[in-house]
Design a protein around this nucleic acid. Structure first.
Lengths: 386, 386
DNA sequence: GCGCTTAGTAAAGGAGGTCTACTAACTAAC
DNA sequence: GTTAGTTAGTAGACCTCCTTTACTAAGCGC
């Protein structure tokens, strides 16, 4: 008896993690990959000898020498002299990333009133910081203002600029096209492409909360895979990293945790519905909630918000088996009863196997997470490093 | 002013999707990838000419000819004669996967009382089906029984067996090691490795609910990325596909949605806590809930379960921006008020941008999903096809 | 028949990585 | 202080893989 289990003819996208082919791979892609591998190692582990790079990557010393020679010729890597310390054999020559070779320009558009920008070194150190009042501009005017602001930052850089990274609210696709950012009056706007043309530099654009997760992943204390970063500010956003990759979602809208209902019949939300997480967890909402309360009542109020956050997080943590949930935002409100109750609630509402290893703590980067994340966007886009 | 955004030296894993290097890539890996690309296309699109393969993969005709020649030599692919229909130019020779060249053996261990097994063709057609009572066996005894069962299935195959796929409850790592499957009394058991040795065949083992998602993704009607399959049986499990890859989770426990609390102070659960989704949504729980009720009351009872399911799903759907949620299990219970209310609840509790494109419907494969998924495990592991 | 188009193959070439073998430079031990 | 052993880095030959270019095969349309 032959029972058909069915079969259909749709073609699917994928990648090469579990060998799920998507598009052709050429030797030159292998080269680019291995090159990125070397940079990645130098970026995270610091100066390394060629021989150690070979061991770390499992490429041969010959290949590493060749790759390093190219990187040195490009000015991205430099020799740093003999490795100190005595040991047998020919002493190793350390090579390291020339972190001063390039700089990165980042812009954070999270705040509706003011755009924040920075020039960063390749290691994520903030070199210059600037900001500019938006004065209610939206749409094309805002693009113009952003372009001028970016130009000013590029001019402020003391080294050639590797690229420009921008974190914006809204739904943004992989190519940096803003599908919709209602508050900025941006709809189907090829922001990365436009800016890249007018600035004559690579420009990467992504959702602000999403790249906050990227920033924490690369520069923060995040220990590895399975990370969710919840950004609390005027609104509430989230970003998720799984298997070292940012989760984008089917229509590039992943991370929209702020508008999940957590209170039945709750307060009206800017999104038109009511009881959204954002109506209780955003910074303004929290300030209002604790305004004028005595310390005990404040703690109780924060804990009750924490509990609701925990209820919303539990299914996500459970479904994805996350390792870490980080809260980014005002520590005076978040890092206390709120956080503790959220963790406690998640533990109560998930299996021990899931919650045992879970950490829920404050993000280690401050208000500059989005700037850092935008820099990672550029690092990863231009050098394959993150 | 130079503000440090911090920097740490941890090394991270990743992959080559967004160019996030993890381990070296050689030309031969490119070759394997392109080879899989060809098979993938033939698998999903059916017989194709070399020239069309070249266009589909963007490899050159020369390379495709070469790859196809190898695949023909291996007996995986065969020429099927001239493409019918008249058009200008030399007529194309169709090549197709020799789906009869190999068969796959699948075992489904979801049921504690009986193991279900099958021999499938490469297209997922069930050729032979067998089952075997477990009689309360666990631990090593169960491994022995499973080995014998697998041998029997392998003997029943009418073609060489490509590999053995096994779906089991429990936490199972990428190498097919069962971290823990309490009901089977399996703890830290290298099941895939052991079986592979004793059967002298490639063996792939993964969580049953996880591979149900894989089965739906490949053989079912799932349209693309962002898929969650919820399996309802004795228990409740889930599997998630993102970007064409199965979500495994930090400690290989992704998909444990069955033990998320959905009823405060609800019924006790086998897991030791209470109010878990499984206490209301498992098949036994649903049968009990509707037992003896008149039709209207039945509908109301099912809808109320649907609502609670929707509450648990909303944060997951929102955070991941899923495209599809599929329910797999008894249609008489699931495919009605329960499903409708679940979808309605998710819509109410998430942003329109998230829920607008969301589909929540019944899975298209029947009780054989896990067997099909286990087959995909083998297909993907051995041929790179899924 | 002749021109045009499409399918498939052959040969040469370039890119990328490995293997083997070499030199350079140090430590340790007699 | 010489010799042996170890480690770092490089040179050259070789293999693999894909591409480019050029060719043959085989049909259609006039």
């Amino acid at each position: 008896m032959t029972t058909a289990v069915t079969r259909n003819g749709t073609t699917r996208k994928g990648l090469s993690a579990g060998l799920r082919p998507t598009s052709k791979v050429l030797p030159e892609h292998a080269r680019a990959h291995n090159r990125a591998l070397v940079l990645q190692h130098l970026f995270h582990a610091g100066p390394t000898s060629r021989a150690d790079l070979a061991r770390a990557t499992s490429l041969t010393r010959v290949t590493i020498s060749d790759l390093v020679a190219v990187l040195i010729a490009e000015g991205l890597v430099e020799e740093l002299g003999i490795r100190p310390g005595q040991r047998v054999g020919k002493p190793a020559i350390l090579v390291g990333m020339r972190t001063s070779a390039y700089q990165i320009v980042s812009v954070d558009l999270t705040d509706a009133a003011v755009m924040r920008g920075a020039v960063l070194s390749l290691t994520g150190d903030l070199v210059v910081r600037e900001s500019l009042a938006i004065d209610g501009r939206t749409g094309t005017e805002l693009v113009d203002l952003l372009t001028r602001f970016a130009r000013r930052l590029i001019a402020a850089a003391t080294q050639p600029v590797l690229g420009v990274g921008i974190g914006s609210p809204g739904v943004i696709d992989a190519a940096g096209r803003v599908i919709e950012a209602p508050n900025r009056r941006w709809f189907d706007l090829g922001l990365a492409e436009e800016l890249s043309e007018s600035l004559a530099l690579p420009v990467h654009v992504a959702n602000d909360a999403n790249i906050a997760a990227l920033g924490e992943f690369t520069f923060g204390g995040a220990s590895g895979d399975g990370l969710l970063v919840l950004t609390v500010g005027e609104g509430v956003g989230a970003g998720i990293m799984l298997d070292g990759a940012r989760v984008r979602g089917h229509s590039d809208a992943a991370g929209e945790l702020g508008h999940v209902t957590v209170v039945d019949g709750g307060e009206p939300c800017a999104c038109g519905r009511s009881g959204c997480l954002e109506t209780i967890l955003s910074e303004p909402a929290l300030r209002r909630a604790v305004d004028g309360l005595d310390p005990d009542a404040t703690d109780a109020a924060l804990a009750s918000v924490g509990r609701l956050l925990g209820v919303a997080l539990a299914p996500v943590v459970s479904a994805l088996n996350l390792a870490e949930v980080l809260l980014s935002g005002p520590a005076d409100l978040l890092d206390g009863p709120l956080r503790e109750q959220a963790l406690e609630t998640v533990r109560q509402r998930t299996m021990p196997a899931i919650s045992a290893e879970l950490e829920l703590r404050m993000a280690s980067l401050d208000e500059d997470v989005v700037l850092a994340g935008a820099a990672v966007l550029v690092l990863s886009g231009q050098l394959g490093v993150s």
